[in-house]
Simulated scan of single mutants.
Amino acid sequence: MSTQPLIAVVEDEEHLAQGLLFNLQAEGYRTHHESDGDAALAWLLDATVSAEPPTAILLDVMLPGRDGFSIVRALRDSGCYTPVLLLTARGRTEDIVEGFAAGADDYLPKPFDLNVLFARITGLLRRMHWHSATPPSLTKAPELPETLILNGRTINFDTLEIAAPDKTIHLTLMEADLLRYLLDHPERIIPRKELLENVWQVKEDTDTRAIDNFIVRLRRYLETDPVHPEHLITVRGVGYRFHPEV
């Protein structure tokens, strides 16, 4: 089996797809192309259980058949957590938030610069293999390397999972990046602008509801009472503060 990453490109605009495939291959990636939403989902689900699933997915939002939002949602529901970079001409805030809510890891508005595309791909692949440093304010779980204990939940950044008392939750890269940043800065008030720029490298004028939605999800994963959080605290009009356990 080749050691070169396999990138799945789901794009129905033929000229754009061929350009992406050519440039990805020139950079040393192997590629697989699908142009129809239904066919793409079928291939991706099959590839997930095959000997060689894709390393990352470049997924157009507007497709014949299923759209990109429903594809990524179906992948996450099936237990497939391959990193997904949405390619979209729909740059409205609502569309970006919908993509994140569906489980996408990043987005790139069309038209885009190839250098930016490759930087995003590199970021996705790098984050899949990070090794988390343990924030000093949290308890290290000695029997599980690279894990943290918070509120009775075991956070494992190697496997991108949270083991709760009654279930195991798989984090997307976006969720894990945000959670890791908060844990690395305990008790500090972190403005939304800082999270946008340092976690996701997006412009400060992007609507911050995307972050708010992610915080709501992380609270569901980690808080005993998500409506009255004790760890992921909102600082009204500013941002968020992470309060570790005493």
Score class of each variant (00 low, 15 high):
215 I>F: 03
238 V>C: 11
241 R>I: 06
236 R>I: 00
209 R>G: 08
229 P>H: 07
219 R>N: 06
213 N>R: 14
237 G>C: 05
229 P>I: 11
231 H>N: 05
214 F>H: 15
237 G>S: 07
212 D>S: 08
222 L>T: 01
234 T>Y: 09
212 D>W: 03
220 R>C: 13
233 I>S: 00
220 R>G: 13
234 T>N: 12
231 H>Y: 07
245 E>N: 10
244 P>Q: 01
208 T>K: 14
235 V>H: 07
222 L>R: 00
218 L>S: 04
214 F>T: 15
237 G>D: 07
234 T>E: 11
223 E>N: 06
225 D>G: 09
214 F>C: 15
232 L>Q: 03
221 Y>R: 03
235 V>P: 03
231 H>W: 04
217 R>G: 07
242 F>M: 02
226 P>Q: 09
244 P>R: 02
238 V>R: 14
212 D>H: 11
209 R>Y: 11
232 L>A: 04
235 V>I: 12
214 F>V: 15
244 P>D: 01
211 I>L: 06
236 R>T: 07
222 L>M: 01
223 E>L: 07
239 G>D: 01
230 E>A: 14
222 L>I: 02
230 E>K: 13
211 I>A: 04
232 L>K: 04
226 P>I: 12
223 E>G: 06
243 H>P: 02
212 D>G: 10
215 I>H: 06
233 I>E: 02
214 F>S: 14
241 R>D: 03
215 I>C: 04
242 F>N: 00
225 D>A: 08
230 E>H: 15
225 D>Y: 04
219 R>C: 08
211 I>Q: 02
227 V>Y: 15
215 I>A: 09
229 P>D: 10
226 P>H: 09
210 A>Y: 10
229 P>E: 10
245 E>W: 09
231 H>Q: 04
208 T>D: 15
229 P>Q: 11
210 A>D: 05
235 V>N: 04
211 I>P: 00
242 F>W: 08
211 I>M: 02
221 Y>Q: 06
231 H>G: 05
234 T>H: 13
227 V>C: 14
236 R>P: 05
216 V>I: 14
222 L>D: 02
211 I>N: 00
208 T>L: 09
243 H>S: 04
238 V>T: 10
230 E>C: 13
237 G>H: 07
213 N>I: 12
226 P>E: 09
217 R>D: 08
221 Y>V: 08
234 T>M: 13
222 L>C: 06
239 G>P: 09
217 R>W: 04
218 L>Y: 05
225 D>R: 05
218 L>N: 00
236 R>C: 08
222 L>A: 04
229 P>F: 06
229 P>W: 07
240 Y>T: 09
230 E>S: 13
220 R>N: 11
228 H>V: 09
240 Y>E: 06
216 V>T: 11
228 H>W: 11
244 P>G: 00
234 T>Q: 11
212 D>C: 07
233 I>M: 00
223 E>W: 03
227 V>D: 15
214 F>N: 14
242 F>Q: 04
244 P>W: 04
240 Y>K: 11
212 D>K: 10
217 R>M: 08
218 L>M: 01
241 R>P: 02
218 L>D: 03
245 E>D: 12
211 I>T: 06
227 V>K: 15
234 T>K: 13
243 H>D: 05
215 I>L: 09
225 D>N: 10
229 P>M: 09
215 I>D: 04
209 R>S: 10
214 F>Y: 14
215 I>V: 10
234 T>W: 08
238 V>Q: 14
213 N>A: 15
